[in-house]
Design a protein around this nucleic acid. Sequence first.
DNA 1: CAGAAATTTGCCGTGAGTGTAAACTTCGCA
DNA 2: TGCGAAGTTTACACTCACGGCAAATTTCTG
Lengths: 227, 227
Amino acid sequence: MESSAPSPPGLRESNKARTRQAISDVATRLFIAHGFEQVTVAQIAAAAQVSVKTVFNYFPSKEDLFFDRADDVVGVLVRTVTERPAGTTITEALRAVLADRRVPFDQDGWKSLRGHERYDGFRSFLAAEQASPALRARRLVVAEAWIERLADVFAGELGLRAGDRRARAFAAMVVAAMGLRERTLSASMLERAGAATVERRVRAVVDDAFARIARAFDDLDRPRSQA
Amino acid sequence: MESSAPSPPGLRESNKARTRQAISDVATRLFIAHGFEQVTVAQIAAAAQVSVKTVFNYFPSKEDLFFDRADDVVGVLVRTVTERPAGTTITEALRAVLADRRVPFDQDGWKSLRGHERYDGFRSFLAAEQASPALRARRLVVAEAWIERLADVFAGELGLRAGDRRARAFAAMVVAAMGLRERTLSASMLERAGAATVERRVRAVVDDAFARIARAFDDLDRPRSQA
DNA sequence: CAGAAATTTGCCGTGAGTGTAAACTTCGCA
DNA sequence: TGCGAAGTTTACACTCACGGCAAATTTCTG
């Protein structure tokens, strides 16, 4: 999203990026240690050695601060669909990717978190999310935006007009399936089920859901043509 | 939900009910007149002639105050399913009811609103909801609860164990369809489309979505046995 | 190094929501 | 009919998220 125009030769820009990352990191660490509601923005600001106002300059709300780390989940779905191998249907491609329990949390945003093993950090993150109504609400709003985004992509892939009712329905069902998947993942990890168990449960949910979605949209979903 | 146990013979109880209703009514009227964000709880309290604290005694949050009027939407779905005529499948029953654009807003909670024609009141209500991120978020949380409730009912109707993955998937898809329907309804009413147009659009969305859901769950959904 | 531009900060205000204890109303019972 | 118990409403004082604004500070351009 950032245009790479280096009008300012970069010190300013890199400072901003570093500050932003520092705030995000410190916030995540506090959230997973004490819970979302228990941490005040003032504490985050103090720990990041900036003023409260600066925190709000970078993140419009406390919730944004929490989800900063988990932001680009649709991106994965979109790429999965648009870059699927020739001959593969949309539902097949999505099913294959989402059956993996580590998607999308084995990457990107979690690297900069020190002092936590990756898995543990993610589990605490989920726990914090479950414990806060405000966060759950926010997550759902994000999911609603996913529907819009996916509907556009589906329409493009299926040769439908943008905004087509069927593309939107397709997207809505896929996002609903994501919800089922996340619920399973979340519940399993919170009860500290072993990796194999989590993997199996997630796979079962995703397989079932996408088999059904494939049936529901068998008149539309289609293999990608040869490149 | 209120148990009818008249341990207190009733004066206290009826006073409470009246106060609660007065607060809810006055709040709804202010919300649809000025928008959710523009109205403060202090104004509501003043207009209802109670203290701010009393408002919060009855309604844990400002959002609860808004949705008080629209609360029992799942109830309609649940009844639709459990009381469907013999020989009708779940998806058929739901489709039939939801194709009607007036469901569930031609009833109950809207009666006590004076000074607004029913339709106009509802349109303003939708407008207020769309205009407030906080309200949209809240609505989605409510929808998530619907999934749980419906999943239980579906499991019961289909002879599955409570918590069965497939029943939950069924519920999630139905709730997703409700979202599509509401989106259509909302958009159509806000652009002041005529009743016939609204009716047609809602019906189209609902018909398509439930035809797909029926296909997705054709191994489970089944006609109700003879009473 | 001076001046322009961007960034950070302090300060003060608003509004939601909570805890507590006092004032008031209603109830149960004699 | 009146008195104490129980429930309800209120005032008060507080915390926290967030917004506007102008001053202070940092970084960039020449």
